[in-house]
Design a protein around this nucleic acid. Structure first.
Lengths: 110, 110
DNA sequence: ATGCCTCCTATCGGCTGTCTATAGGGATAG
DNA sequence: CTATCCCTATAGACAGCCGATAGGAGGCAT
C-alpha cells in the first residue's frame, strides 16, 4: 500500500522504539509493527536492526524484558520502558527537535 | 556562545553541503562555516567529516572542483554545484521531508 | 631570517549502527 | 507429517561520522 519506505537514519531507531513502548509493554515483532504504524508506514524495522537495538537498550537499562506468551500463543520476549528509558525518551526527543529545527533552518536559508 | 552542538545524523551531511553551495561556489572551510551558519550553530562539520564527504560527492558528480585563491590569499579548492547536484539536492530534500514527517507522526502518537 | 600563528586541505583508524541473509524452534493448519 | 506462520536471534558486511594528526603556505613580529 505504501511502497515508499525509507531506510532509517542512524540514531532514530532508539527514539522510535522507546516511543512505541509508551503505550504499553510489547514483544519484539509487536514493536516492529507499531513503529511501522506510528510512522505511517515510512519506517520498516527488520529483525536484523531490531534485535541488536533491543539488546543494546536492555543493557543500557532503558528497557526491561521478560518472557511471556504472545497473542498467538507463542513464546515471546516482552519489553517494557523503565524509568531511565522514559528519561532517555525525553532526551532523544529534545535531540530530535534540535536537529529538525536546524535542518529546517538550513533548508529555508536563501 | 552556542554550547549546544549536536553531532550529525548520518545522511544529513550531504544535504547540508549541497544546500550551502546553492548560494555560490565555495572552498572547503567556507562550506564548513556556512553549514554552521545556516543551521544556527547546531551542526559543526569538522575536517575529518567534511573532506571525505566532498571527495565522495565529487566522484558522484554532484559537485565539481577547481583550485583557486581564497579571500586570504591562500590556495583553496573551490566547489560548485553541478546539474546532477542540484537534482540530488531535491532528492535529499524530499527524503528529509518524508523522514521528518514520519517522526513527527510518531512523536504525536498517543 | 627565524619563529609562530592562522588558513586550508588531507588522511588514517576506529567506532557505531544499520542492512542483508540466514537460522531454528514452536504453534497451527491442511 | 509437512508447510507455514510467528518469533527470536546472530553473523558479516558496509557506510559514514569522529578524533587525531599532518603538512604546506602566507602573514607578521622580532
Amino acid at each position: 500500500m505504501s511502497p515508499e519506505q525509507t531506510s532509517l537514519l542512524q540514531g532514530t531507531l532508539d527514539l522510535l522504539i522507546l516511543k512505541s513502548l509508551v503505550s504499553g509493554e510489547m514483544h519484539g515483532l509487536g514493536i516492529s509493527r507499531r513503529v511501522q504504524q506510528i510512522t505511517g508506514g515510512t519506517f520498516v524495522v527488520k529483525p536484523g536492526s531490531l534485535f541488536p537495538a533491543l539488546h543494546r537498550m536492555d543493557e543500557e537499562g532503558w528497557i526491561s524484558s521478560f518472557w511471556g506468551d504472545s497473542e498467538n500463543n507463542r513464546r515471546a520476549k516482552y519489553y517494557r520502558l523503565t524509568k531511565a528509558g522514559t528519561k532517555q525518551l525525553e532526551v532523544e526527543t529534545r535531540r530530535w527537535s534540535r536537529i529538525s529545527w536546524a535542518i529546517a533552518q538550513a533548508l529555508e536559508a536563501s
